[in-house]
Design a protein around this nucleic acid. Structure first.
Length: 925
RNA sequence: GCCCGGAUGGUGGAAUGGUAGACACGAGGGACUUAAAAUCCCUUGGCCAUACCGGCUGUGCGGGUUCGAGUCCCGCUCCGGGCACCA
């Protein structure tokens, strides 16, 4: 029987399916292990060969853990809400659900061919009502909770209301939109609407007027991580800033915990760093500056309270509320003019335009420490959304302030000894303070760090301000003006937002006639009929964003069919959280922040038992495409091979990589590829072949470099695909897909097969394994076990090749060796392993039920070892001795060896170093 | 600008501070074959020598530590990624 992957793979996939081999249930007698892939968005293009990379790695690890006695949860599902299906719906009128289902079916078919060990019984889809019921349920809880900054956890809004009723805002420590102060009496005096508005200021899911990223082309707002360089990540359309009344999640309240808890995660340093940057903690002080001639106090945030004596002007963000408050009558027109000019600019234009601009408000502030009179300006280099939207400018020690000061000819006062500020600012936080003393505070002579501490202390004590930590992380904007997403479980009664009771969940996504905004500019849900409660209160018209459904999906897999709870306490306490999460690094500041936030919120509520969702996370690298080119001589239909193209005036043209093999073009296939090439002529290499050029590019249809996993599976088999994807290089590294080279791993499988089959004859025998056989096998056990633990799958594959080569040379057909070998191989190449396991043992067990072997040092021990004997570090000869020879004897032997004589001649031995089993170094002079 | 990674043959990539280049591709040579495919064997970092033994050199660049450095330390260059008027 020749190795026939089609037969073997379809047979075993069917058996696994029929037997429910990969079904998993809670089993308290075994330790659990949860391996998760980032579930895919099922796009219309289907999977290309890059997508399964992470899935293969996680499948290998899952199977390995299972063989090691763990009860492994390894589920898969679909992130099924999203923009592409809706855009397609707008163009074709086809319901997004229809397209989504078609795409999912296609994905499933492709995934099945690769032989994954998913428990499909646990599949979830974010667009299914059974699932999004729990997304809505979580939203209701976020609406019903506020974040207590003293307790550092979410607490019920009802508890907040009690406090407000007894003592007002006194003693309330809550994350909020704006600081409020009122008494219990004032609270009680509020009408229902005022109370609702007040509570909105505290809720974790709240309605707020916020600057949003508005994308006119997509007709919706986008979250910060969905925008890059002023354009939408999906589609690349321009994005502008717009003030809108939107649902938001108070993610910022969790910034401190999100940052601190990174410490305990087993994630790569670079990913943690990305999240740290995104969260952006900065320690400093908030200080009040009096405005001259009024009782207005300007609140500013600075990280450099030590430089307060160098403040020569103040700057307000154009959108800041302070602007109207402080601007003097004679400057009002100029200020308004400036604000208008800013408003017209989109985020993108503001970013590209690095020119310094600004306007004087006419107001002066008073430096609380020096008493100096300082002008207040407005400029768009100060952002409204960060800190207080106002800054104290210290041009000598901040490059942005410096640029502004030079442009408007404002004074620059250096505060650090020896700092040369004639050309640029001195931003470094080191040196000795000068010019920094008044009758209130003296920082002169102190080191910057000391000065900072002293300044902070004084500011707090004198009541000028308070020490404060600011985060760059913003609240997540949670409304989308789209159809294909979760409806909010929200209705408006007399203009007040209310959430639905749990019993009425899920609130089903209604049908609409068109997937476009209404004529009056409302979101598509405005088209739905009877989109209101039975009492006639209208439902929310926005839907939730993509990250809503993907934030807690890993919890649902633990208990996917539970209609009473997101996850039962029993299931959650058994499966805990994800032990290994594999996915792309592009989710670093989106999904991976939102998920952590969402999980922490549920943790605060006691719904889940762990405060972090993903213990270990691995980012698989991107698989890029490898494009091929042909070279057409200008104005002809003649194509020149790569080696001869320099002699002609040619245009490179992308050619479908699927009609190229090892860079050699299939000429007939090329003529058939496109009608215009039917009559193509070629200038060939001297060996009569056409060699194509190649380049690494993104894998995409337009470059004709998309390789479909189905084609690879059809031609080489899933086992070859799996091994080859791993063999390509380190998991975490980005690398181009290159089908050249796949023959190598395919050859390995055939070699393995041919070791045990000659034609139809099974060569497996019961001979006792020799020491040599055992050594080959146990070397492999050791190497593969270690490699899998380290996610070094490429070197494991190499180890298999070496082992099979050795066993072939040894002509080892031992049943004992074979059965162990295929257990090791099963995670990588499950189908052929099953087949050989079955052939070898002839019984009805599957290799999935086997036990991972452990290696025996005994078999690995060398009887002899070879030392490289070196003189002053240069290896000169090899010395082979018994493995257990003491170092002392090795030393003597090396020095007395005949080959040593010429190196030792006329020299003295100063030192001899023996590294067991490796090196003898003789230092001579 | 700030913060992370990385740089090893024609190619993808191996190397707990211990003989750099495992394994694979590609290339060259050979066996089998009418031929091709498949399979198997040999060679393959560079330079020199070549009947054979062999010699020199070599992990982006410059220094350092060490008996010994691809690996550790300092200073650069280039490439990739993240953040970026965040005060």
């Amino acid at each position: 029987m020749e190795y026939n992957h089609r037969d073997i793979e379809s047979r075993w996939q069917e058996r696994w399916r029929n037997d429910g081999t990969y079904r998993v249930e809670i089993d308290k007698t075994r330790p659990k292990f949860y391996v998760l892939d980032m579930f895919p968005y099922p796009s219309g293009a289907g999977l290309h060969v890059g997508h399964p990379l992470g899935y293969i790695a996680s499948d290998i690890y899952s199977r390995y853990k299972r063989l090691n006695g763990f009860n492994v949860l390894h589920p898969m599902g679909y992130d099924a809400y999203g923009l592409p299906a809706e855009q397609y719906a707008i163009q074709t009128g086809q319901h997004p659900e229809t397209t989504t289902n078609v795409n999912i079916a296609r994905y499933r078919e492709q995934l099945d061919k690769i032989g994954f060990s998913y428990d499909w019984n646990r599949e979830i889809r974010t667009c299914s009502p059974d699932y999004y019921k729990w997304t809505q349920w979580a939203f209701i809880r976020m609406f019903g909770h506020y974040y207590d900054t003293a307790l550092q956890k979410a607490m019920p809004v009802t508890a907040l209301v009690e406090k407000l009723e007894t003592s007002g805002t006194e003693g309330v420590h809550a994350a909020c939109g704006e600081d409020m102060e009122f008494s219990a009496e004032q609270w009680k005096a509020m009408d229902e609407k005022q109370k609702a508005d007040t509570l909105m200021n505290y809720r974790i899911a709240y309605l707020g007027n916020t600057m949003v990223n508005w994308c006119p082309e997509l007709g919706t707002v986008l979250a910060n991580d969905e925008v890059s360089e002023g354009v939408s990540v999906r589609g690349g359309y321009p994005v502008e800033q717009k003030l809108m009344y939107q649902w938001c999640l108070r993610v910022s309240a969790y910034a401190g915990r999100l940052l601190d808890d990174l410490e305990k995660l087993d994630w790569t340093e670079s990913l943690k760093e990305t999240q740290r940057n995104w969260i952006g903690r900065s320690e400093g002080a908030e200080m009040k500056f009096d405005i001259e001639g009024s009782d207005i106090k300007l609140d500013i945030f600075t990280t450099r309270p030590d430089t307060v004596f160098g403040v020569t002007f103040m700057v307000l963000a154009p959108e800041s509320e302070y602007v109207d408050m402080v601007t003097t009558a004679d400057r009002r027109e100029a200020v308004e003019e400036y604000r208008r000019s800013i408003k017209h600019k989109t985020e993108r234009e503001r970013m590209i335009d690095k020119r310094v601009s600004g306007v004087f408000t006419g107001a002066y502030a008073v430096n609380p420490l020096s008493g100096a009179r300082i002008p207040v300006w407005v400029s768009d280099y100060v952002l409204a959304g960060y800190g207080t939207g106002a800054i104290m400018a210290v041009p000598a020690h901040d490059s942005r302030d410096y640029a502004f000061a030079r442009h408007f000819d404002l004074p620059v006062i250096p505060l650090i000894e020896g700092a040369d500020v004639s050309e640029e600012s001195y931003d470094a936080k080191s040196g000795r303070m000068v010019n920094s003393a008044s009758d209130r505070l003296d920082l002169n002579g102190l080191d910057v760090k000391e000065a900072m501490a002293k300044a902070k202390k004084y500011i707090e004590e004198a009541g000028i301000g308070k020490v404060k930590v600011n985060y760059r992380l913003r609240d997540a904007i949670f409304s989308r003006q789209r159809y294909w997403g979760e409806p909010f479980p929200v209705y408006y009664k007399d203009g007040i937002a209310n959430v639905l009771p749990d019993e009425s969940l899920p609130l089903l996504l209604p049908e609409v006639d068109k997937f476009l905004p209404t004529e009056s500019g409302e979101p598509p849900l405005g088209r739905a009929e009877n989109w209101c409660t039975p009492e006639g209160w209208p439902f929310e018209l926005n839907t939730m964003p993509g990250f809503a459904g993907s934030s807690a999906y890993y919890l649902r897999y633990m208990d996917p069919h539970n209609s009473e709870a997101l996850v039962s306490e029993e299931a959650n306490s058994y499966w805990q959280n994800v032990d290994l999460y594999i996915g792309g690094t592009e989710h670093a500041t989106g999904h991976l922040i939102y998920s952590r936030f969402w999980n922490k919120f549920l943790y605060d509520l006691g719904v889940v038992c762990r405060d972090e969702p993903f213990n270990k996370l691995i980012n698989q690298g991107m698989i890029q495409g490898r494009s091929n080119f042909v070279y057409r001589i200008k104005d002809t239909n003649t194509f020149v091979t790569l080696g001869k193209k320099d002699g002609y005036d040619v245009t490179p043209i992308h050619v479908d990589v699927n009609i190229v093999s090892n860079d050699i073009l299939d000429l007939e296939a090329f003529r058939r590829w496109r009608p215009e090439y039917a009559t193509a002529e070629f200038v060939l290499d001297d060996d009569g072949r056409y060699r194509c050029g190649a380049a690494v590019e993104k894998m995409s249809k337009s470059m004709f470099n998309v390789v479909n996993p189905d084609d690879i599976v059809e031609r080489y088999g899933a086992d070859t695909l799996r091994l080859y994807e791993m063999f390509l290089g380190p998991l975490e590294q980005s690398k181009p897909w290159d089908t050249n080279g796949i023959d190598g791993v395919n050859r390995f499988i055939k070699k393995l097969w041919n070791l045990y089959y000659k034609g139809d004859m099974l060569l497996v025998d019961d001979s006792k394994p020799t020491a040599e056989n055992l050594k080959s096998l146990h070397k492999l056990i050791k190497k593969v076990s270690e490699d899998i633990e380290n996610f070094s799958f490429n070197t494991s594959v190499a180890a298999f090749m070496i082992c099979v080569n050795e066993l072939s040379q040894q002509k080892c057909h031992s049943r004992e060796i074979l059965s162990q070998l295929v257990i090791l191989l099963a995670p990588f190449a499950p189908h052929v392993s099953e087949e050989l396991w079955h052939s070898a043992l002839g019984n009805d067990t599957t290799v999935c039920d086997a036990v991972w072997p452990s290696y025996n040092e005994e078999y690995l021990r060398e009887s002899e070892v070879t030392y490289a004997v070196s003189f002053n570090g240069k290896a000169r000869f090899n010395l082979t001795v018994a493995a257990d020879m003491p170092a002392q004897e090795v030393e003597t032997l090396a020095k007395n060896h005949e080959s040593a004589a010429k190196w030792l001649e006329g020299k003295t031995v100063r030192k001899v170093i023996v590294v067991p089993g490796k090196i003898v170094n003789i230092v001579v002079s």
